[in-house]
């Protein structure tokens, strides 16, 4: 073999090797993107059903507004999810013919057992949040943070973060953390963003982390 032929073979080999390298690089990128955007969210969140189904729409129509059940107590604290004490007035006996209603009355009301609701908006214990300051003082609507849950016919699947134990609703449905509405996420940055818009300042640490 001549010297020229040898060089040409070597160039071809290098070209082939370079192409393969890029191909493998792109495969790596593709795998990572697939894992990061598709597989990872599926693995990260554990899907859980609520103990019983519940229609906010039906209740809203019956009782009028959110604060009939999610009310402020006399001392200004927020009641959060209703307890049996609130439900029992109407639900001492089975109403309607849904399976959820029957389970609720028989397994919870009759046994005086609180329903272990999974709370979509539960924040970590290190976070202090006052509903009174936001709803009463700043006159914010429930939808600003909780979206259109008040008109829902059924409760969404609760997705529990396997690492933190908190609901997916805190980070937001979009795994990249991109939001379209104010209620899409409930992370600290979202609080800060709103505070900056409304008050001109994100606020200080100890406002929320007591």
């Amino acid at each position: 073999m001549s010297e020229t032929q040898k060089v040409s073979a070597s160039d071809n080999k290098r070209k082939n090797t370079g192409g393969t390298t890029i191909l493998f690089f792109l495969i790596g990128v593709a795998i990572s993107l697939a894992v990061g955007w598709v597989i990872f969210p599926k693995l990260l969140y554990l899907k859980k059903s609520q103990p019983i189904d519940f229609s906010h729409a039906v209740h809203n129509e019956a009782v009028g507004d959110c604060d009939s059940c999610h009310f402020f107590r006399e001392d200004g604290t927020f009641s959060g999810s209703p307890t049996l004490a609130q439900c029992i007035d109407c639900h001492e006996d089975v109403q309607g013919d849904t399976e959820a209603e029957q389970i609720f009355v028989e397994e919870y009301i009759a046994q005086n057992k609180e329903v272990p609701w999974l709370i979509y908006s539960k924040q970590p214990d290190c976070v202090f949040f006052s509903h009174a300051a936001h709803v009463k003082k700043a006159e914010m609507s429930c939808e600003s943070c909780h979206g259109e849950i008040g008109t829902s016919e059924t409760l969404p699947i609760y997705e529990e973060n396997r690492i933190t134990g908190y609901s997916r609703n805190i980070w937001g449905k979009n795994i990249a953390g991109i939001k379209k509405h104010t209620w899409d996420r409930m992370k600290m940055d979202d609080c800060g963003e709103c505070h900056e818009e409304e008050t001109g300042d994100k606020g200080s640490c100890f406002q929320c982390h007591k």
Binding site: V29, S32, G36, W37, F40, P41
Partner: peptide
Amino acid sequence: AGLAFSPL
């Protein structure tokens, strides 16, 4: 490199 462009 791909990971850096994913949310993971």
